[in-house]
Amino acid sequence: MNRLPSIICTTAVTAALLLSAAPARAVPDGPIADAKPVTAVAPEGAMAARLAYNVGYEVFEKTQLEEAASVGLTGAKAKAAQAKMLAGYREARERFDAAAKADPSVKEAWNLVGYTNRRLGDYEASLAAYEKALAINPTYSEAIEYRGEAYLALNRVDDAKTAYMTLFAGSRAHAAILLSAMRTWVIERRARPAGLAKADVDALAQWIEERASVAQQTASLSPDVVVVRRWD
């Protein structure tokens, strides 16, 4: 589902299929509709982009599975798994980058250029790629969430909070993922402050709990939640 469709189809529908392909996602899309109409792309560029994206996605998916399987490893095994993971993300980044360059209108490719750069520790390149994805569709929930995580890595807490609030209004599922990442950030910064004041970390921790409470209380405001109760 996350892959772009087979290249065995006419070039006339290539662009449409490419642009309608679902992005890599951790959760289903939220209720936000695309804000901008789909623009036409050159068939050659679209074809090249799709090919690069699909190959990259295969590597990306494999790397994610391997990363998940490596949780709990220690010592040399952990080190080897880490090296393999980085190599996987490097290769995937190369492919997604090629896809984005072949067809700059593919927000999914930019989004995964951002993701792989973030996982490889290049946060500035990551942010630049998310900007490209969000310039195509400012309500692209997955990119907003990923960018929020990049902000956290850079200790840009206010920007991460803004990202959360944007997601809260449009995609509760993505907002919950970012809130979870914030909790992890708090745990990590309490263990290794990296120059941050304890009070700042505590303030975010308090904010997280308040927002989690608001999210839990107001879950039914989201159109995805259907509450039907009849008094009989």
């Binding site: 509709a33 695309d34 901008k36 109409p37 789909v38």
Partner: peptide, 10 residues
């Protein structure tokens, strides 16, 4: 999917 998006935009 595309149709839904286009309809939404309209």
């Amino acid at each position: 999917m595309l149709r839904a998006v286009a309809l939404g935009c309209a």
